[in-house]
C-alpha cells in the first residue's frame, strides 16, 4: 500500500517514516513537508492508478497550506480515484474542535493523536480496509 505523509516537522517525518517502514506493510512511502507539495505530488501521480497513495497521514498545523486547506483543495481536485484515497489526520492537537472539523471531510477516516505508533496505524489500516470492502460490495 502506498502512503503519503504530510507534515512540516522534519523530526516527525523521520520518526513516522522509520516506524511505517518497520511495520512492513508499505509498498511506497511519499513524504511532503507541506500541503501544496502533497497536492502537486497527487496531481503528478494521478495518471497512474497504482502509484496514487491510498492513505494520507495529514498534519493539521502547517505553514502556507494547513491540513484543512489541503483537504479543501483535494475535494476540489479533478481526480477519478478520489473515493479510494483515505485521509487520517495526524496531529498533536487534543482540541476536540480540530477532531470535529476533521470528520466533516468525507475523505477523513481517522484522527490520530501524535505520536503515531504501530497500534494506531493498524487501527487506521483496519478502518481503511473495512471501507474498501464496503466500496467493493
Amino acid at each position: 500500500m502506498n502512503i503519503l505523509l504530510v507534515d512540516d516537522d522534519a523530526g516527525f517525518n523521520f520518526l513516522n517514516s522509520r516506524l511505517l517502514r518497520r511495520l512492513g506493510v508499505i509498498e511506497h512511502l511519499f513524504v511532503c513537508d507541506n500541503g501544496a507539495k502533497a497536492l502537486k505530488l497527487i496531481r503528478k501521480l494521478k495518471s497512474n492508478q497504482n502509484s496514487i497513495p491510498k492513505i494520507i497521514l495529514l498534519d493539521i498545523k502547517m505553514p502556507q497550506m494547513n491540513g484543512f486547506d489541503f483537504l479543501d483543495s483535494l475535494q476540489e481536485m479533478d481526480l477519478e480515484m478520489k473515493e479510494e484515497i483515505f485521509v487520517a489526520m495526524l496531529s498533536s492537537s487534543v482540541d476536540p474542535t480540530d477532531k470535529l472539523k476533521s470528520y466533516a471531510y468525507p475523505q477523513v477516516i481517522d484522527y490520530i493523536e501524535k505520536p503515531l505508533d504501530a497500534g494506531k496505524f493498524f487501527t487506521t489500516l483496519h478502518k481503511v480496509r473495512n471501507k474498501q470492502n464496503v466500496q467493493k460490495i
Binding site: 516537522d9 516527525f12 513516522n16 498533536s92 493523536e113 501524535k114 505520536p115 503515531l116
Partner: peptide, 9 residues
C-alpha cells in the same frame, strides 16, 4: 503538544 508528542514518539 508538538514537542511533547515528539518526545513520546
Amino acid at each position: 503538544r508538538q514537542p511533547v508528542t515528539k518526545i513520546l514518539g
